[in-house]
């Protein structure tokens, strides 16, 4: 269960103007803008659901994921993830959640992937027999056995993402945050990643919150979407309801979402 209630977070951002003169002036005086990254966000995600968290770049998706995983303290609002307040119980929560950032890696670059897994076992203090079971299951389900002994920097992006998914699930978390897990992947890897997400959700009841710009990810995984824009929740409901509205009839899914963005002035 994930609950967000009135979460608000703003940042101070330095303003930059073009030209050498402005750059010199900025040596002495600098102007700032206050950006409301997340502006009163509330929603609930029941256990065992997959939710598509969508919105344009800079909408506040990453900020809210940071809040939910405990690495950013909001200015206002309350939040409970697996019964814990993320920023107050960060380390405790860490054992209950898995996080994948599609653009970054959590594995060690220069060593075989299996060594990274072993170290994660020690970091999360997973008992050896339990670790072996969950590792073998993940290696099988994600079909990574062929390159698990290869250093990370030598595998393809699709292979890497599958290894990342395995790494984030070694400690059997109840909740999984996926931040653009399919970015830059080829068709085969995308399908494999989607199939796997469906599997762990169906078989192990893992709650999944997924951000993506690929609407086919959403279509393949869930009907429940939350649309965020300019730091506010704009829509929280089913994709099918959006699709069946009059304006959307017969349009491809990308067009529907673009229309949704436009409708909210994003």
């Amino acid at each position: 269960m994930i609950t967000l209630n009135g979460i608000h977070k703003s940042f101070k951002v330095a303003r930059r103007k073009p030209g050498a003169k402005a750059a010199l002036a900025a040596m002495f005086r600098r102007e700032y803008d206050i950006v409301n990254a997340v502006d009163g966000v509330s929603f609930d995600i029941p256990d065992g659901e997959i939710v598509g968290y969508i919105g344009p770049n800079g909408a506040g998706k990453s900020t809210s994921i940071k809040v939910m995983s405990g690495i950013l303290i909001p200015d206002e609002g309350t939040c409970a993830v697996a019964g814990l307040t993320p920023w107050a119980d960060r380390k405790k929560l860490a054992r209950r959640i898995g996080v994948v950032f599609g653009q970054r890696t959590q594995l060690w670059w220069d060593v075989p992937i299996i060594d990274s897994f072993d170290l994660l076992r020690d970091i999360y203090r997973v008992p050896q027999d339990e670790y072996k079971r969950s590792r073998d299951r993940l290696v099988g389900a994600l079909d990574i056995g062929a390159f698990v002994n290869t250093p990370l920097r030598q595998v393809s992006l699709g292979q890497r993402m599958r290894a990342e998914l395995a790494a984030s699930l070694l400690h059997s978390p109840d909740i999984l945050f996926l931040d653009e897990p399919t970015i830059g992947l080829d068709a085969v890897s995308k399908l494999a990643v989607r199939r796997f997400i469906r599997e762990i959700n169906a078989e192990r009841g893992v709650t999944v919150l997924l951000t993506t710009h690929d609407m086919h990810d959403i279509e393949a995984l869930t009907d429940h979407i939350i649309l965020i824009g300019k730091g506010r929740i704009l829509y929280n409901g089913t994709m099918s309801a959006v699709k069946s509205s009059k304006t959307a009839e017969g349009l491809p899914v990308e067009e529907i979402v673009a229309g949704l963005y436009k409708e909210h002035g994003l």
């Binding site: 930059r16 030209g19 050498a20 750059a23 010199l24 900025a26 040596m27 600098r30």
Partner: peptide, 11 residues
Amino acid sequence: FIGQLQYRAAA
């Protein structure tokens, strides 16, 4: 040159 001037704190 202009790019380098951006780094105020560094200067």
